[in-house]
Each structure stands twice: as structure tokens, then as C-alpha cells.
């Protein structure tokens, strides 16, 4: 294992680009899971990929083009209503089909599609760092405002309707926030890595946490640790970041599922 690349300044920008994104994804993932909308994240990531490639085909920077598709997807998700798995399935297929057709028919698209599917975080530059910190900052500012409204809407959906409170705007802002963060994350971390960081930390946190606050903290810690470990290991072992990050998160999920059984058997 060669640890020397870790200290190379050239990898500082990718590291700075990924960190706020994985924390934002892990936090958003808890709300998506509670709302039974985690599949939407995969649909939005596919649409962001297709949009990023379409942007590249017309000379637009992919990180700026990707949010267009994701935001259109968020609009579709909002209009079709909450928890519409069929709509998410359509988003996934539309994004996948468009991505591969663009990749097959443009030289730049082919290279970019491979980079996004492989999850090449190490290509991230100043633009990605700027967008990532903007996305992370928006999550930090908006989530505490949105959270009580979204939780109340989940557990007491009739309360806001009965009192004629404008709950629609909280749902819409949340959908747009998720779409924006996923778009930037997809272009920076890779498609499946972005989905994994929104899906798996929340899944692990949900099974073990004793409170909502604990769930948020656990999800953030799991996402952050998985990111640091996969960043270092991918460099040291010369592996693609995305698949390695997903593999580490899946190992974490397996250990988390095994632990109660080990506890029960007295082996832990």
C-alpha cells in the first residue's frame, strides 16, 4: 500500500469537494428514507448524469449542466406527488437511456460517462469545490428550517392541511434542495457513489439510533468516515473512488446487520 499520494497537494481539491457533499447527502438521506423517497435519489442522480452529458455536448461545464436535469426531475417528483415509485422508475430509465445514447454518440460524452459511472472524484477542480461548498452551505442553512415542517407533515399530514398552512412550499424547497445536491454530488463523486452516500448511511443509522437527533448524527458520522476511508484507500491502492466507497459502505452495512446477532450470541 502506497500512502504517499495522500499528502500530495493535488488531491486537496478533490478531498475538499467531496467532504461537504457526503455530509449533506447523509443528512438528506435520513429525510428521504423517512419520507419513503430514497428511490427518488437514484432517479435524480440518473437525470443529473444525462443532463451533465447533454451540457458537455453543447460546451457547457457538466457540473453546471447537471442540476438542470435534476431540477426538472424534482419538478416531476413534486407534481406526481409523494412516494411515487413509478415516477422514480421512469426517471431512472430516462436518465440511463439518455446518458448511454449521448455517450455512444459524442467523444467527450463517452469519456465523461465513464468518469461519472466510475466515480472519479480525483478529477474535481475549483468549480466542483465551489459548488460542493455552496450545496453543503445550503443544506446547513435550510435543513434546520425545513426539518420540523417536513417531520410534522410526515407524522401529522392533516395538521397543516387542516390549519391551511402552506406546507407545499416546504416540500418544494426540500425537493429542489435534494435535486441540487444530488446533481453536484453525481458530477463530483460519481453516480452510484452519490446514491450510496444518500442511501446507506441513513439505512444504517435508522436501524440503530434511539432518536431523530441520534439518527442525523450517526448518518453524518457513517458518511464522513466512509468517505475518509475510501478516499485514502482508493489513493493508496490505486482504485476508482466510487466503487470502493460503495464497497466500504456495504461492508459497513453488513457489519451493522451482523452486530445484533453477535450481541445476542454473546460473541460481541
Amino acid at each position: 500500500m502506497n500512502l504517499a499520494p495522500i499528502w500530495d497537494p493535488v488531491f486537496l481539491l478533490p478531498w475538499l469537494a467531496g467532504l461537504p457533499l457526503v455530509l449533506a447527502l447523509a443528512l438528506l438521506g435520513t429525510l428521504l428514507r423517512l419520507r419513503d423517497e430514497w428511490l427518488a435519489a437514484l432517479g435524480l442522480a440518473h437525470l443529473a448524469t444525462a443532463s451533465g452529458l447533454a451540457g458537455a455536448a453543447v460546451g457547457m461545464p457538466p457540473p453546471l449542466a447537471a442540476p438542470v436535469g435534476a431540477l426538472l426531475g424534482a419538478g416531476l417528483k413534486y407534481l406526481t406527488g409523494k412516494g411515487q415509485n413509478s415516477a422514480y422508475g421512469v426517471m431512472i430509465l430516462a436518465g440511463w437511456s439518455t446518458t448511454l445514447l449521448l455517450a455512444a454518440n459524442t467523444a467527450l460524452g463517452d469519456a465523461l460517462a465513464h468518469a461519472v459511472v466510475d466515480g472519479q472524484l480525483y478529477f474535481a477542480g475549483r468549480l466542483e469545490v465551489g459548488l460542493a461548498w455552496l450545496a453543503g452551505g445550503l443544506v446547513l442553512v435550510l435543513l434546520p428550517v425545513l426539518m420540523p415542517h417536513l417531520l410534522r407533515a410526515r407524522f401529522f399530514p392533516d395538521h397543516e392541511l387542516a390549519n391551511r398552512l402552506p406546507i407545499w412550499r416546504w416540500h418544494l424547497v426540500f425537493d429542489l434542495l435534494v435535486a441540487g445536491v444530488i446533481a453536484v454530488a453525481t458530477m463530483t463523486l460519481g453516480l452510484m457513489a452519490a446514491f450510496a452516500f444518500i442511501f446507506l448511511p441513513a439505512m444504517m443509522a435508522f436501524s440503530g439510533a434511539r432518536s431523530w437527533r441520534g439518527t442525523l448524527i450517526a448518518s453524518g458520522i457513517i458518511g464522513g468516515l466512509a468517505y475518509l476511508a475510501s478516499f485514502v484507500l482508493a489513493l493508496a491502492l490505486d482504485q476508482p473512488f466510487g466503487p470502493l466507497a460503495v464497497a466500504l459502505l456495504l461492508i459497513g452495512l453488513g457489519l451493522a446487520r451482523l452486530r445484533p446477532r453477535l450481541n445476542a450470541s454473546g460473541a460481541w
Binding site: R33, F155, F156, R210
Partner: peptide, 20 residues
């Protein structure tokens, strides 16, 4: 208005405690 529906919403996984 405050309303307790006949079947309160109860997600299969809901890691909130009673105080929250």
C-alpha cells in the same frame, strides 16, 4: 385545529423518540 385521525400515520421505520 388539532386532529387525531382514526389511523394515525406510523411509518415502518421511524427513529424519533416520544419526546421529539
Amino acid at each position: 385545529w388539532r386532529y387525531l385521525p382514526q389511523r394515525p400515520v406510523r411509518p415502518a421505520q421511524a427513529p424519533l423518540n416520544g419526546t421529539e
